[in-house]
């Protein structure tokens, strides 16, 4: 019963056993939310706090979050740091390589908007959401590991609310299309360089 109590199911006791009812959606979302494997991909300062959040004191493993070294095995990607124009097309490609359903957490003010510091730098992309859809924004410069954990818990909540279709890229892409198209010119221009 201990495990069952935490599952998103309805348990009805019958004489000689019981009956469990649930929906595929709920079980899938529950398992996705409780084992988010993130890609170990550091860009700048925030990467150190991301590593600290995964290491001894803060310990992401408690939420079933493990780091993987390749996008093919990961569900989620932290954009941890400043995105330069040289790096932007490569991040887009990495995001395309993530297995669906895939999630993105923009960590720190550089990833959110180009940052409080790099707003007038000629070589910095002003926010990752110009090229890929973002699920959770965690502000800070860099955010504390606690803040990052809060962001991950928010992501779990979001995953648990999702429908079966919504989790997948096509839907998300459609949702984020307007923003993406707005940022598309950046990628196009970078490709020409």
């Amino acid at each position: 019963m201990g495990v069952i109590a935490r599952l998103p199911v309805y348990w009805e006791k019958l004489p000689g056993g019981g009956l469990v009812t649930t929906s595929v959606e709920k079980v899938l979302n529950w398992s996705r939310a409780s084992s988010i494997w993130y890609m170990i991909f550091g860009l700048a300062c925030c990467a150190i706090e991301m590593m600290a959040a995964g290491a001894s004191r803060y310990d992401f493993d408690r939420y079933g979050m493990m780091f993987r070294a390749t996008p093919r095995q990961s569900d989620m990607m932290f954009i941890s740091g400043t995105i330069t124009l040289k790096m932007a097309p490569r991040i887009r490609r990495l995001w395309e390589q993530l297995a669906e359903p895939r999630y993105v957490v923009a960590m720190g003010s550089c990833a959110i908007s180009g940052g409080g510091f790099f707003y007038d730098a000629y070589s910095v992309l002003k926010g990752i959401d110009k090229i890929i859809p973002v699920d959770v924004y965690v502000p800070g410069c860099p955010p504390r590991p606690e803040a990052l954990m809060h962001g991950c818990l928010k992501l779990q909540e979001k995953i648990k609310r999702e429908g079966l279709v919504e989790a997948f890229g096509d839907f998300k892409e459609g949702q984020a299309e307007a923003e993406r198209l707005a940022g598309r010119w950046i990628l196009d221009r970078l490709a020409q360089r």
């Binding site: 400043t82 330069t84 040289k86 790099f118 730098a121 000629y122 070589s123 910095v124």
Partner: peptide, 14 residues
């Protein structure tokens, strides 16, 4: 190199 070139020196001048 240059994937994290954030133009620090130039920004210091501004």
């Amino acid at each position: 190199i240059g994937f994290l070139h954030r133009s620090m020196e130039k920004m210091a001048e501004n």
